[in-house]
Design a protein around this nucleic acid. Sequence first.
DNA 1: AGTGAGTCATGCGTATTCTGATCGTGGAAG
DNA 2: CTTCCACGATCAGAATACGCATGACTCACT
Lengths: 223, 223
Amino acid sequence: MRILIVEDDREVAGNIGKMLRESGHVVDMAHDGEDGLAMARDGAFDVLIVDRMMPRRDGLSMVSILREEGDKTPVLVLSALGEVDDRVAGLTAGGDDYLVKPYAPSELKARVDALARRRDPEALKTRLSVGDLEMDLLARTVVRGEEAIQLQPREFRLLEFLMRHAGQVVTRTMLLEKVWDYHFDPQTNVIDVHISRLRSKIDKPFETSMLHTVRGAGYRLSD
Amino acid sequence: MRILIVEDDREVAGNIGKMLRESGHVVDMAHDGEDGLAMARDGAFDVLIVDRMMPRRDGLSMVSILREEGDKTPVLVLSALGEVDDRVAGLTAGGDDYLVKPYAPSELKARVDALARRRDPEALKTRLSVGDLEMDLLARTVVRGEEAIQLQPREFRLLEFLMRHAGQVVTRTMLLEKVWDYHFDPQTNVIDVHISRLRSKIDKPFETSMLHTVRGAGYRLSD
DNA sequence: AGTGAGTCATGCGTATTCTGATCGTGGAAG
DNA sequence: CTTCCACGATCAGAATACGCATGACTCACT
């Protein structure tokens, strides 16, 4: 689940981001309305979290513009303004939900999940399986056949992404963005290294390999 | 799912009721605080939706009374008053959630679902056990194997939360919110310290450890 | 004032990740 | 069929981030 936080207060943005990352989402941030608008336009996010009052462009006008452009990404509007009129304004500008500060982190999380579910019911499942490989997102455990497999955090994210796209070729660029949060090419072989380590855990000890290299394109997980 | 709506405005009550019935719930109604109280007492409802301002008895005092009588049915408070203090009042009276009018029907539905989900049979149990570790919530005692273990209040809450989520990874954010009631990141290592103390009591003196660190994610209690 | 619980700050040790170099291998061209 | 090249795999060491323990401090309650 890719989430964009548009919030000028960096501390608040950081807190929200941290929490959402803990629940397994990939989080990007913008710190004013113009940047947010630009990122939302080409970002392909699943949910936007947008503050109302921000420098350069306020949150509501940003949302209005996106909607005029036909963008239907669910938006959660954050605001200190909780009056009826304010809430109505937030919703008519095209927001899907409106949360008044201060709010409980769990409330925010619940709303984001609700919005995300509306868009893609699959995305919130807590168990993934491909062939005899199973992953439990809540317990953070991985099992292949009868064997429990111990994974590092990054390996876990990597495998999760591969499993969510099982059977498809996953490019390096996709991995860099969704697993590493890099939006540029780090010119190193980080990916190769982690793929290698993942293989040594999920493929090496077993009869058949599931993680295949597709030369010139990327990798594919399948049984 | 049985739901009781306590709301004096019959039109509003009707609308809410209609919507909830459409989502497959069984809905009862009361139109003032006294009737609502009576029905809630013997009704065995799964969720109560209660308006604040009503004839004969206001919603908050109705909830307070139910709570004093030991009734733990989840309550969603509806109100036109949306100031922070009003929300706080609603929650301290024993409400589980607070929704300010006007609200989107879908928002109401989402909240009701959330409350219903929260009400799990686990919450009413007075004994928890994981492996050879047992906790008695009423007596406030903890035993591992044959050994009685003395815990501080905060340690007790921490362990309780971990036991209720045994086998799952519990994030720091979850702990801050549910055990400390912090709704922000205090930027300190309070959690680490208490986990450390808890370990010295429930793990150190024994052969096997139950409280595992999941780097980058949180902690998991399991045997 | 004294006690005890809870919180905060620091420094340490180590797990995890990244880097850069080297080695291996598939596929196209000759 | 062989050779060469580019891409990917692997390895080991370095850098980093993370979690842990300890002791000092604050606050509330006696």
